[in-house]
Design a binder for these strands. Structure first.
Lengths: 335, 335
DNA sequence: AGTTTGCATGAAAACGTTTACGTTGGCGCC
DNA sequence: GGCGCCAACGTAAACGTTTTCATGCAAACT
């Protein structure tokens, strides 16, 4: 049972394939009545245009690719949701490639997407300017998410990690804390570095004499848990800890619980991301909210824009704001 | 700058396009030396075969589609990870379509994927046998995840929800509980119903005289929270509560905390799914572990199998086992 | 040595669509 | 009434590949 093609429809409607094509797209160049007849014939035969044939001649796939790192938890799903939502609204398909460890694997991923997508959404620590130059055709629209890359000719969309972290630390200091520890994310990670910068900047600005304590983490709960155990054993113990993401903050809470520390009385805890579960942990987590769905959505919107306009040459760089969400874990009630 | 085509490579290597094609795929039918020469020429010109042209003639896209519901949190990301991992291993691309509310939207999604994919992975409550008949070509390989559909000619891969729930309730009963409440998922959800059945069956079997308490939930934390408040106010209060998923169990914990109930001393709590965060909530959550990554992986493996063999006509139905993970929230230490 | 076999290679058709171009016919204008 | 023009429609080329078939050539067999 061969699928019905445009020829079948043409025969059924007693017109040429050209007219069928015209009637199916836009419909200009055909009478309203023939157009109707054609569409009815198409309906009757359950005609679905062959995507590949269309791509071949049109040189457009109506598909965008998303290159994502090995992301865990809520962040990933929220991001995809945002992207997918916007993609659907634009009639675009979404080709996903996630969890590639090495830079070589990422390169293979973008190469294999070559020609299957009209544009690319890239969120990956490993991707830098050199990578882009080496692996991407100059004319492929690309939007970079949370990337340090600048002036590469590609659009960039960042979260205001630095600003969010800065605001959170300022909040903690204003709440009376001085000895504030920071649990960092992976060393190579851009978000992580920006959040660390925000922490440093706010400390320097509002509590210049206070000690800086930075513990290594990697965005996974486990590492937050380990950092928490370390913190619990310190003397003097910091009165507050700011984790570079919520996952680690949650791990940290577990460690404190185990160590017999009360939160926020003995030590305040703050996170970053406001993953949905943040308000259900015990105590509810003070954190910096990032509208992840919006991040995905705007990224795709921007890409869709690029697909339409032939690239305004000056690559835009947008930043998405964050807001502080105060809950019990940093002793809001005490303030 | 027109992309380099197979013709360019042919000219560069001084052979015909046919030989280039042969050299690039398999390489049978060409001398080792000419094959090498061709591949070098291709390398030199940075030749990447035009995917659409290949699809057109081959009638295969090397792409599979994943139709997913509006999934939240860890489950979604883990599932995608598993699917993506396996897809990469098989050299398949992954076209994702998630978060469609209505059945009509889902239908539109599968229709629009028509011809862009070789097979489909479907996880959606709204999809039943009628839907499949109406919207899918008879010969498109499909694997259904967690679907009640049977004998539709499609492969089905389910989680042993009933068995997992049964085992958990048995465990609670063996730990001395009798009055065990259950927080259900969405009424129409297949997993939810199966888990409820497991609860009922275990209660009937091991504690036939105990009261059955079923509270309505919808898999979201919020609903677990509400159910928790209800439970806290009951007299007599159940001594254990089994939530149909971890999210709701977490919401429940928050409610108990707020109501001043101690877990597990005053009331034991168990969940389902073992989302990564389950072990970091307070107290760590006893739950039923579902290897979600494996679920995604096996689903894709099965689909890939279908793509190879021309469908053995008898649609297989597999079930993926669960295991109980005992943590503090159900008073394991007491036992 | 002649015939057959087999293998490397090339020529060309085919996949299903869009679109540039040509053809037709009707209509208005002089 | 003839001319030109425009809209509707058809014809055919083009997109880049794979694959069938034909061709040539060398080795192997009789």
């Amino acid at each position: 049972m061969a699928a019905t093609t445009i020829k079948d429809v043409a025969r059924e409607a007693k017109v040429s394939v050209a007219s069928v094509s015209r009637a199916m797209n836009g419909g200009s160049g055909v009478t309203a009545e023939t157009s109707l007849r054609i569409r009815q014939a198409a309906e009757r035969l359950q005609y679905i245009p062959h995507a590949a044939a269309r791509m071949l001649i049109t040189r457009r796939t109506r598909t965008v690719g998303a290159l994502l790192p090995d992301l865990y938890g809520e962040f990933f799903s929220e991001l995809i949701r945002g992207i997918d939502l916007a993609a659907r609204a634009h009639g675009l398909h979404l080709l996903v490639s996630s969890s590639h460890d090495g830079v070589e694997e990422a390169a293979a991923a973008v190469r294999s997407m070559q020609g299957r997508v009209d544009g690319l959404l890239i969120l990956s620590e490993r991707v830098d300017a050199a990578f882009l130059r080496a692996n991407l055709p100059r004319d492929l629209p690309v939007v970079l998410l949370n990337s340090p890359v600048r002036n590469s000719g590609h659009a960039v969309l960042n979260v205001d990690n630095r600003g969010g972290a800065f605001a959170m630390v300022r909040h903690l200091i204003q709440a009376g804390h001085r000895n504030i520890a920071f649990i960092s994310g992976p060393a190579g990670n851009f978000d992580s570095r920006q959040r660390l910068k925000g922490y440093r900047a706010a400390m320097a600005r509002y509590a210049p004499d206070a000690p800086l304590t930075v513990l290594d983490g990697d965005f996974i709960e486990e590492s937050g848990y380990r950092a928490g155990l370390q913190l619990a054993a310190m003397t003097p113990r910091p009165t507050a800890v700011f984790a570079a993401n919520d996952m680690m903050a949650v791990g940290c809470l577990a460690a404190f619980k185990e160590a017999g520390l009360r939160v926020p009385e003995d030590i305040a805890v703050a996170g970053f991301d406001d993953i949905p579960i943040a308000r259900y942990v015990n105590p509810p987590l003070t954190t910096v909210r990032v509208r992840i769905v919006d991040l995905g959505r705007s990224a795709l919107e921007q890409l869709a824009e690029l697909l339409q306009r032939p690239e305004p040459s000056s690559a835009s760089a947008q930043t998405l704001g964050c807001e502080i969400v105060v809950r019990d874990s940093c002793g809001a009630s005490v303030t």
